[in-house]
Write a protein that binds this DNA or RNA. Structure first.
Lengths: 109, 109
DNA sequence: ATTAGTATATCCAATAAATAGACATAGTGC
DNA sequence: GCACTATGTCTATTTATTGGATATACTAAT
């Protein structure tokens, strides 16, 4: 049981969102953010945040199983969002909607 | 001209969202957040952030014009979101959608 | 074999933001 | 005067982000 803590720091929210619909490797996440016009995140912020997201159970990772000719350079580690991670993103949106639509209890007679 | 800076800190996003559909006064904003299950924001965080949001042109404020019998206690200052503020919230959502759906350019022949 | 490019990962110092608590002011009702 | 509602500032602490440096490792080209 125990309701989880779904809170995300700003960078964690952006990184997790980048994984919402696509499995991606580290530098690909930065590319997705950069090319979508988001503010720059360096890899010095990326990797520690991916680690924290993994510790919270919001993402999991696996080493790329590509044939060596599929891409140049070093091994890629792929990250994918978990069910809990998806829940964290949804919870954030529900909270914002709920805050926006809240109205006070009319003070009773 | 000059494309504006629509970036919001986490608390600014929550506060601005509380004003998205309703004009509210300071402590009412905190109530909307609290009763929707958001994490606690104190008035020591609220007022400076409202000031910053007003300086950025995302909200404007006016003193309550209520008849004195409509509520007990001191004057209320009402805040409402501006067109620019609404744009800031929309820009944030569009950015997240864009990051989530981004796919890499297929590397050409 | 060296260099360039891609990729993951950590460490440190500086800056920025949020947080708790105290303090101050003011209007209303009792 | 006291309690309650409400707006607002200040300071110290903690937390998060940022830039820059450093390290490892695999691939491709010279």
């Amino acid at each position: 049981m125990s309701t989880q803590d779904f809170r995300l720091t700003p960078n964690q929210e952006i990184i997790l969102t980048a994984l919402q619909f696509h499995r991606r490797y580290g530098l690909e996440i930065l590319q997705a953010i950069e090319e979508s016009g988001g503010k720059h995140i360096g890899f010095n912020s990326l990797y520690p945040n991916l680690k924290k997201l993994e510790q919270k159970g919001f993402v999991k990772s696996e080493w790329g199983e590509e044939a060596p000719e599929e891409h140049t350079g070093a091994r890629r580690k792929y990250y994918r969002i978990t069910g809990t991670g998806t829940e964290a993103l949804e919870t954030k949106q529900l909270l914002l909607t709920s805050i926006a639509n809240w109205t006070p209890e009319p003070k009773g007679a």
